[in-house]
Amino acid sequence: MKHLDERISDLVDDRLEHDERDRALVHLTVCAQCREAVELERDAKNALRSLPDAQPSERLVQKLLLLAEPGEPLPPPAADSHPAPVAAWRPRDTRPVAGPKFGRGPERSPRRVRVVRVAALGMCTTGAMLVLLASLGGPSDSPDTPEAPVSVVPPLEEFTEEHARSTGVLPFAEPAPFLVTPSATVGDGW
């Protein structure tokens, strides 16, 4: 019979079928090498079982809890609860539920999240204030509000006629303004 090799652990953990186990035990009676390997495996197992429960640090627990994102935050562990032994602990599924994971690095801290949220709130508030001021500063139909200056195109021909009318009262001024007409002749003067 061949050496037990990988079946040593199964034998120590009592996970072999009945026939297989009998054959392995028969082999141990004739093979000192395998017998020594089984003894070492059993000693190691017994040593591990004799160790006390490991106490993970609080920081490690928080980091591990953050690995649960995305998803609803995990409730904080109760103050009087004991952390699970390392051998019994299993990480949660950290795969995203759906979609790409933008900016969801494992380095994100609650403080940074809080800063980002405060900044976003501040920007939204500032934007709302600016929109409110702009609406207040817009044109108003209120009669008691002075109107903003408007663009003006002076009616030049009308003004020229009014100028001519006003100069008509002066005895020593020329009636020249009345010559402002397209049909007036243009020459080299007198």
Binding site: P149, V150, S151, E162, H163, L170, F172, A173
Partner: peptide, 22 residues
Amino acid sequence: IQLSYSDGVMTVSVFEQVGWLD
């Protein structure tokens, strides 16, 4: 508002309007 000025011989009319020239 039309404002008419003269020195008896020369004439100038000044018109004032509220607004700005575009």
